[in-house]
Nucleic acid binder design. Structure first.
Length: 490
RNA sequence: CGGGGCGUAGCGUAGCUCGGUUAUCGCGUCUGCUUUGGGAGCAGAAGGUCGCAGGUUCGAAUCCUGCCGCCCCGACCA
């Protein structure tokens, strides 16, 4: 095995290779689609479990709506249609038949659907079409529903996890009796996303509001959590939308409030996707491969036996099995790799590539000395300790790694969040992919578009915790009351 | 959809301009021996409709025609 390309020499080649080598995913034979391999899927399952239990704690319940959406449903919310029409897969027929020449199958023209079906790019349409039937009174509200599913958006250019034609996600769709409640819900979910991404994935985020042009078509307000990758590009890691009454009006979802007055229902929607996997990789990993936060690592400790003879092998593996029991009893996820078909050096490199937080090696010398060797993935530190301290050391290290990689990512983000007060400086910073560039903006879409056309930088968000600070737009010199975050983005 | 490029073993490739024995090399795979505390060494073996179809020719991976597929760059996007 040759080493990975380095981040410094070719970041995107590094990313692509790493995803393949770490066994996370690979390209499918269907253009733009990916096969998520068991190790990659195990990480996704960890994320799912964490998010899902957080949703349950906030009173949300899971349901499932169909993959197919009648075309007529999609046409009902104009802004929403405009946003997705260009990337929808359409089902037109429901049957195949044997080809005339006997080779393979062809679409049976007789089986044309009367109404074409759209493969969901998102489910607002079908869900609000259903909420119409579920909601009559304020007593039916709120509805706090979530679904885990796949969606399809026919993308031109795709990259594993970052942008694929089909991807997995979670979409929450809530309905409320008041504007205030819906607004609070959208913000609640944004904060929830931030907390999990920070506390479990060890990724610092900036919370903010999207500008008109970056807003979800169909939303009144789109909130985002923005993250910064090691190459200085930004990545949107999650969104929460306050929908106002737009979908309720489009699908005629009304209710009678406590005062006996009919009103349209207020809505939100919010989601995170398999794209988070891309963020995870690009924030923490290094030139030796993946680096995983212990809290979401499917395997936290991998044990590698060292031996020469069969007798030594048996003795070492027996001892490792004992260690494994001790660690499992502490709730630690451990794998013992006792394969005799691979050598230790190979295993060391392979598990580093897979980002396993701690490696434990045990050989004949250790058996004699009653010691064990531990190696940390994030710092590469290697220590030999008395085996009696194993559980304590592993527990300490798992905590230390979780916090260290977060602090490292936070420091990088802070260091790469830079003020620009004039357009020349701004352009230099953006061209060098400096990171998040905080600058004044006049609030117009025109200026935003011109800056994008000239520099490829977009406004990632108007930060929620940003301070009022009078200034002048870097492009138009018109007055501005606060800074926004610009960056090149994934 | 515009511009460029590529299809040869599981993967990466040489050969193609200038047609000529059994299609090259590396990685990986398999077998054996030696190895095993940082991606092992040696010896041997298996593995191919040279993208598909047609044509030119005594002879095509190589030349010609058509088709198919993929990749890269641009417009769109979580």
């Amino acid at each position: 095995m040759t080493p990975l390309p380095t981040r410094a020499s070719n970041f995107s080649a590094w990313y692509n290779e790493l995803v393949l080598r770490a066994g996370l995913a690979e390209n499918a034979s269907v253009r733009g689609c990916m096969i998520i391999k068991p190790y990659g899927y195990a990480i996704w399952e960890k994320l799912q479990a964490i998010f899902d239990s957080a949703f349950k704690e906030t009173g949300h319940v899971n349901g499932y709506f169909p993959l197919f959406i009648p075309k007529s449903y999609l046409s009902q919310e104009a802004g929403h249609v405009e946003g997705f029409a260009k990337e929808c897969a359409v089902v037109t027929h429901y049957r195949l038949k044997m080809a005339e020449d006997g080779h393979g199958v062809v679409v049976d023209p007789a089986a044309k659907l009367e109404e074409e079906l759209i493969v969901r790019p998102t489910s607002e349409a079908i869900i609000w079409g259903t909420y119409k039937n579920w909601i009559q009174s304020y007593r039916d509200l709120p509805i706090l529903l979530n679904q885990w599913c796949n969606v399809v958006r026919w993308e031109m250019r795709t990259r594993l996890f970052l942008r694929t034609t089909e991807f997995l996600w979670q979409e929450g769709h809530t309905a409320h009796a008041t504007r205030e409640e819906a607004q609070a819900e959208a913000l609640q979910m944004l904060h929830l996303y931030e907390r999990i991404v920070r506390d479990y994935m060890a990724i610092p985020v900036i919370k903010g509001v999207k500008t008109l042009s970056e807003r979800f078509a169909g939303a009144e307000i789109t909130y985002t959590i923005e993250t910064l990758m090691q190459d200085g590009k930004a990545l949107q890691a999650g969104t929460a939308h306050y929908l106002g009454q737009r979908f309720a009006k489009a699908f005629d979802v009304t209710f009678t409030n406590q005062a006996g007055i009919r009103d349209y229902v207020w809505g939100t929607s919010w989601g995170i996707t398999t794209r988070l996997m891309g963020a995870l990789i690009m924030v923490h990993s290094d030139d030796d491969g993946l680096v995983l936060p212990p809290k979401i690592a499917p395997i936290q400790v991998v044990m590698v036996p060292i031996y020469k003879t069969a007798t030594e092998r048996t003795a070492v593996v027996i001892q490792l099995s004992e260690f494994q029991k001790i660690l499992i009893a502490k709730g630690i996820r451990v794998k013992l790799d006792d394969r005799d078909t691979r050598k230790p050096g190979y295993k060391f490199a392979a598990y580093e590539q897979q980002g396993i937080p701690i490696r434990l090696a045990l050989g004949p010398n250790d058996l004699q000395n009653k010691t064990v060797e531990l190696a940390r993935r994030d710092t590469k530190e290697k220590i030999t300790i008395p085996s009696g301290y194993l559980a304590q050391q592993v527990t300490d290290w798992l905590d230390a790694i979780q916090s260290h990689i977060y602090q490292r990512a936070l420091a990088l983000q802070q260091q790469r969040t830079i003020l620009a007060d004039d357009y020349a400086t701004f352009k230099t910073l953006i061209a060098s992919k400096a990171g998040f560039v905080l600058a004044h903006w006049d609030g117009t879409t025109e200026t935003e578009e011109k800056i994008k056309a000239e520099t490829k930088a977009t406004i990632r968000c108007i930060p929620l915790d940003g301070q009022e600070e009078p200034g002048y737009c870097i492009y138009s010199s018109k007055p501005s009351s606060r800074r926004v975050i610009f960056a090149q983005a994934y």
